[in-house]
Design a protein around this nucleic acid. Structure first.
Lengths: 213, 213
DNA sequence: GTCTATACAGGGATAGAC
DNA sequence: GTCTATCCCTGTATAGAC
């Protein structure tokens, strides 16, 4: 259960976590084998077990690291698109498109999220809570803060920023996530852009300030 | 691949499909064993293989049957709540709550949908398309028809009924689905009701006819 | 003739020993 | 870094029972 701390060379550890991300993302937890991960990392299987107690520990470790990394990437996208807003609608659309790409791009971070969702019944509750808190919930909090600022500037009318963040995410992101099965099936770029646009239009019907019409 | 047609007694076949629904839903495709399914059905493993060529055939068969059954159940809910609408907001909320319960109730139909989503990378494209068409997409079509009728009655202003159906589903259902990981983690009834209410309120801000205010 | 019960062959996995 | 003990699963085969 507990991560096997700092044994071994750090560069080997990183090679293993990178490989585990790839293999778990591609195969899912059950299908992935420790042999395949060792081979992908270019290390001996013994080295893998030297760094991580067992398969479950390795999976949960990379899941958490991955979740935090993806949250950081999305935070950067928010800084890019929602810090200095000039064209509200267009910036909200651009953010939605880039976020969908970041989360759902094949072979990347999203694949591991798919594996987590598939294994959720077999994950200890506290680990699942930690994953949520480092990932989706953290992004929701970040987005709520952005919306609160936009409301202060008079661009949006927002009573509950957390709710607005959730509904923005539902309208602009979850349709794509569902259609692509969280990145397992590719969705054309134009379709992502279309969904983002109609999603933002719906969102603005709920939350746009009348003055900013 | 092709379902092994009508060999054997029909009541045995039904026991097997019921057991397969339970076990696949609880364990997922990879973890579920044919032994466990045979035991759950109270039949010999040989009998399972007498009705279904292999594990994959059994899984895809019950997935499709299940999908169609759930679509029918949701269609009934629509008839109950969206046929004779008197209080639009309340009827939309009640439908959302009952649909969430029907799809996400633990141990029921939702579990198999979770298994499908987990295995989507290993499912043939045509079978996946058939599953979508008998399940989520069919419900979306049904709901779009209902919204078109409500628009004709002047209760909603809907340009694109399909889009309205999708956004209603996102706002009132996908938040619960995501939070419960498609039924794997229980969500309290009050939370489902709260999400349905705020989702419907947002939906009505987009689509409610001004006259019906 | 279909079902039950059981056993078994073949492959692959984990986890750890050498 | 290889090698192996042990276990589990799929799918088949071999018995007899209703």
């Amino acid at each position: 259960m507990a991560a096997t701390g700092g044994a071994g060379r750090p560069e080997k550890r990183q090679a293993i976590t990178r490989a585990a991300t790839t293999v778990f993302g591609r195969e899912g937890y059950v299908r992935a084998s420790m042999d395949a991960i060792a081979a992908e990392a270019g290390v001996s299987k013994r080295t893998v077990y030297n760094h991580f107690a067992d398969k479950e520990t390795l999976f949960l470790t990379v899941a958490l690291e991955n979740s935090a990394e993806l949250t950081g990437k999305i935070r950067e996208l928010m800084r890019t698109y929602l810090e200095r807003v000039v064209d509200l609608r267009q910036d909200l659309i651009d953010f939605a498109v880039d976020r969908a790409r970041a989360v759902l791009s094949a072979g990347d971070h999203g694949a591991l999220g798919r594996a987590i969702r598939a294994e959720v019944a077999n994950i200890p509750a506290d680990v699942l809570a930690a994953w949520l808190d480092a990932g989706p919930v953290a992004s929701l909090r970040d987005l709520a803060e952005r919306f609160a600022v936009l409301a202060d500037r008079g661009l949006l009318v927002v009573e509950d920023p957390g709710l607005a963040a959730e509904q923005y995410t539902l309208l602009t992101f979850h349709g794509v996530a569902e259609r692509s099965f969280w990145g397992a099936v590719p969705v054309p770029d134009e379709e992502v852009a279309r969904i983002a646009a109609v999603g933002v239009d719906a969102f603005l019907k709920i939350y746009r300030a009348p003055a900013a019409g």
